[in-house]
Design a binder for these strands. Structure first.
Lengths: 192, 192, 192, 192
DNA sequence: AAATAAGCGAGACGGTACGTCGAGTCTTCAA
DNA sequence: TTGAAGACTCGACGTACCGTCTCGCTTATTT
């Protein structure tokens, strides 16, 4: 059991850094976000940041995406209902101001480093995939679906579509987007 | 007709800059790509670059995406065939080494600037949309399709899926990806 | 006899360059004086300047010091009177706006290049020395002076004092400066 | 008493910068002296220089003229002796390799900026003037001198002559220069 | 008249240095 | 050991001039 030696880390420092990060990423955008500015805004030294996170991508990731897997797996009784809830959740999360501001740059930095690239798969895709599989298993048990489902393709489609719309097109999310996207994909795979 | 005044710009300089950009973006990645290094590699002064392009995003865009709209609109006789050809074209273009290396960072920079964000819509989405509409019109004429088609949603899905897979997941493109994606989307809209 | 081949140089171009140089050196100072700006102000190409002068120092020198040796050798009847006139002439010339603005930087550039350094001696010191010698010869003939006069030292003193005051101290020239300087030096050498 | 906050400036960095400046100004001359090269030679970042000095003139001034007022006020018993020592000191200081290399360009830069121009008067002329006044007071007490002495004129003459000779004429300093200059000026003012 | 040749304004060209900014690390004192 | 402050090296930024060059055009002399 490792006991803490020396002065313990201050939780308020942690909080202040994350809060400052969220504020600044909205104000200046991810690309113009400087660690030094975050430190100043948080009333903190730069080292206090580098002591906790290896760099900007990891810090922003933690600051912006806190509740990724907090939401429970939906169970509405129909596949299309479940997928709609899932997509709506994605949209909610990615369309938030800080997320929308951070996403393109953040993804670019993650994509550029193999080590971070792996985290996209592990932290984001893998849990989402297991959720999807559960939905499909339930749907198959109800007889809604055949068994050989291209889960990876569906995952790429759902996430890619949402990210593309929110992060790159930059347009506001139209009302029925989640419903229409879920319907299209589910019909596409149900029809064989 | 205004005749050119002063010494005209050297086409070889132009070419050398674009070539050096493609080389370096593959070698170092978009984020580490420095204008000064491009200039040195091209045997050119930095001014020669800034005279032609306002910044790194515009330069890389022109260097990497040259033949966006060069390919003819496919006409295979079936909607699913046409869309497959379209998606395969997207995959070919985005999976090329320079494009794959440049894409995430490039999209981040474009997304960060409203002026550039507009260019995504104008230079990329608008032409793609008109192509899609033509395919759908032909399909509707053949009776393959009803008339109220969510073109924007389909566009987001096709482009988003391809970009997500190539740019972020970073995995090699599996053999049948184009066919399976096209099939899923087309079935998804034909059924409803 | 070499006859002029091709189009002869335009005298108005010459004039315009010199005029623009004088204007700009007063407005911006010697250090911030750029050949390109002179060309623009004169409505002229940069080559028209480089065709006539090797560089900024030579151009400014010609633009600012036109009438160096135009004034006649003074002959007032007394040595002190002659030297006073000489010093007053120096002060007039060096205190003019363009000259005062150009002098320190110009001298620095001349001093930095051995080739130009020689021109200080030839174009400026040598003629002044021969003038001084004539004054001293006349004074010796009148019995005002012994014969072994340290002409070089006197020259350094007169020129150095005036340049130091005008160029570096930057103070306005006090009324009796020429008289008092001439008196001090002449008495200093007459007493021997 | 305010205690120093943050990491204190490293004295070795300071020293290394000044040493590199002296070396380079001798090797390349003042005009070709580049801040970036000084930084490289000193093994230091450019910021470390700009943090301490506002620009090249101030840096070179501090690097080259360290011991301006270190020498004690001479007291030889006669005015001419005292002034000779003073002039010899000026010559020694200005004829040193680094000083001779820096002087013309340095003076030009100082003269070009009003703020620096004032420093010539404050840091250099004012102390020298008070020294001169002390010499003259002692001489007057000994009866060597009348009381109304044009101190400013004498200062301009001594400094101007030395600077002109060393900085612009560029000739080596002849052996008896200090004696002869001091003699001329002192006789010039003693004779009334 | 045609050929030749230099001058001319405009501006592109390869360089070099500028002064600023951010990165990530290090060093001080205080808690 | 944490923490705020700020100095440290490094590297890229975008700009400004340098002095040269390459255009189309003009203005002279020579054939």
């Amino acid at each position: 059991m490792t006991s803490a030696l020396g002065r313990p880390r201050d939780a308020r420092t942690h909080t202040a850094i994350l809060a400052a990060t969220v504020e600044l990423v909205v104000e200046t955008g991810y690309g113009s976000l400087a660690i030094g500015n975050i430190a100043t805004r948080a009333g903190v030294g730069k080292d206090a940041i580098y002591r906790r996170w290896p760099g900007k991508p990891e810090l922003v990731y933690e600051a912006v995406f806190t509740s990724v897997d907090a939401s429970p797996i939906p169970d509405t009784g129909t596949l299309i209902g479940d997928v709609t809830v899932l997509v709506a959740g994605l949209l909610d999360e990615f369309a938030a101001p800080a997320a929308a501001a951070a996403l393109p740059g953040l993804l670019a930095d993650f994509a550029a480093q193999p080590a971070l690239r792996a985290r996209i798969r592990e932290d984001f895709l893998a849990p989402a995939k297991s959720r999807l599989i559960e939905l499909f298993d339930r749907a198959a048990a109800r007889g809604e679906l055949s068994t050989d489902i291209p889960v990876d393709l569906i995952l790429d489609s759902l996430a890619g579509t949402v990210l593309f719309h929110v992060g790159l097109v930059g347009a506001p999310v139209p009302p029925g987007l989640a419903d229409r996207l879920a319907e299209m994909i589910v019909l596409g795979i149900q029809t064989r």
